[in-house]
Amino acid sequence: MRIVAIAFMAFTEAVRDRILYSLLAFALAMIGSSIVLVRLSVGGEAKIVKDLGLGAISLVGVLIAVFIGVGLVSREIDRRTIYTIMARPICRAEFILGKFCGLGLTLLVNVAVMTVGLLSLAWLLEGRWSPELLPAVLLAYVELLLLTAAAILFSAFTTPTLSAIFTLSVFVIGRLIGDLRAFAEQFGGAGLRALATGLSYVFPNLARFNISEASVHALPLGTGYIPLALLYGGAYLILFLAAAMAIFARQDLK
């Protein structure tokens, strides 16, 4: 009940944030403008739209998760609005979880709006619905939830600017970690291999959540890929949120 109240308030606050609308408009414009590329290409028009559309959903989602996520806790402390909230019978873990759910809901609504835009455009081009895109959207959403949890984790102990830098680093390293490890295995020395292995244990391999190529080109993913990816994402999500709760529980709200 209390978590729901905090989540709903975080959602309300995000909905009133102009940055959200700017990013959403940017994403829809990006999806819409892919029509121009379609005219320049020969064959595979709808695939270009789908590819670009999934990219736009992911990019804009990442920007929302990072830039709204890093302010979720720190802004409450800076504005001193947190005093009247935490003076209620709420434990700190509930606050973190409520904030996470609030931004998760904001992202869900945004991803849904962008997905409807993309599916509608694909329908206009192909004359049919493209449900094969939905697993890609689902995993992109899980990746966004992971980044939201990372943003909350960092913002629990550092400034919003540093939190944004750290969260974007998680995104970049997470997307490249698989390639880096493969490169280190093939060409690197013992040091690089150890570094790549160490990083792969700490950072989530976010490339696992990017299946847009397979979805757009209808490539087989292998049975159990999506449930396994969901489990993998869930495990990291629990880890990030537990760390955020543990840090926030020891913090003085000065």
Binding site: A5, R79, T81, T84, A87, R88, P89
Partner: peptide, 30 residues
Amino acid sequence: RAAVGFLPENPSFYDYLTGEEFLAYGARLA
């Protein structure tokens, strides 16, 4: 804290809420 009411110094609240919405939020948290 369920049995405690608190007013902080120079209080600051969510300024986009109305007075009633703010109190309703406090009631839900309580």
